[in-house]
Design a protein around this nucleic acid. Structure first.
Lengths: 163, 163
DNA sequence: ATGCCGTTGCGAAGTTGTCGCAACAAGAGC
DNA sequence: GCTCTTGTTGCGACAACTTCGCAACGGCAT
């Protein structure tokens, strides 16, 4: 889950996020700061519980409810988006600009995908009755690790629940 | 949830599905037949529990586990696909051909969207390491009912859990 | 009709996400 | 620095969704 990457989140991003909280009148608690630091540096689109398990190692006693509530707050402030992940739990993405996703059918990995040709797709016509506010292209298939059986790089369960 | 539509699923589709089960060596039980009949005619991308509540009215005693297992089987046989539905429970789509979705941010409605211009998007390059097997474009926004406050056509809760 | 073997129903349990409430802490004002 | 206000946190319980284990059952081939 790319937990060991050198955490190179843009420091300006963190500052902007903290400013957004402040200007919304929301106090910047220790928990929120730690969650922001960790979350904004993520490119692995974590689920709430995953993020909780991760941050709780450095913030003992951190409650799961707090993580769920904080992520929800970030979505409301436009600092994060929920991403759709068929067959898995809810996940969050700190990138809110237009981009796309590659989703591994086997291990559930979600990779970002940049492709200018996908950034100006035609929206559904107004007469369809549906007022489109945005879109995202989701490619499904196998990630590098799962496509190469010799190196099972992502030993995650294919489904979320159960043994 | 469009439960009253005249059930016009292609009879050939049902036959093909039953043939697929047979050729996989899977017995065609009463429960599976009823679920297939109902599910293949759906264009509302039902969740497992929704489908259960619906079919159980005609098959008393139908277990929820059976519905979950059957849908899983259909996915494995390529007769259905899981679709991503942000913030909601798992949903299934009997259409496995290339098409796209309009998802209402407010009521969770999922509409099919046909648009030839979206059917030949560039796949991620092989050197990305990701072997794409398919894709789908998801538009988010407001459906006709939710965009028109005068007629709240879809009085469903915006989130799934809680009170 | 018989037997094999996968399916079903049931209840329990696991996972994900939310709620209510009391204790607490951030930030403003003094 | 102290206090007050107000929103946050942690906790435990709960709700919704999903899967599991097992015994009984039922397709389907012979």
């Amino acid at each position: 889950m790319a937990r060991q990457r050198p955490q190179r989140h843009d420091p300006a991003t963190l500052e902007r996020a903290e400013a957004a909280l402040r200007s919304a009148g929301l106090p910047l608690t220790v928990q929120r700061r730690r969650l922001l630091e960790r979350f904004l540096g993520c490119s692995d689109h974590p689920a709430a519980d995953t993020l909780h398990a991760d941050v709780a190692r450095h913030v003992p006693g951190l409650s799961r409810a707090t993580v769920y509530r904080t992520l929800e707050t970030l979505v409301e402030l436009g600092l994060a988006v929920r991403i759709a992940h068929p067959g898995w739990e809810q996940r969050y993405d700190p990138r809110t600009d237009l981009h796309h996703h590659l989703v591994c059918d086997r291990c559930g990995l979600v990779l970002d995908h940049e492709e200018p040709a996908l950034d100006q797709l035609p929206l559904p016509p107004a007469r369809s009755g549906f007022a489109a506010a945005g879109y995202s292209v989701q490619f499904r298939g196998l990630c590098a690790g799962c496509a190469n059986p010799r190196r099972p790089a992502a030993p995650r369960a294919p489904r979320r629940n159960g043994a």
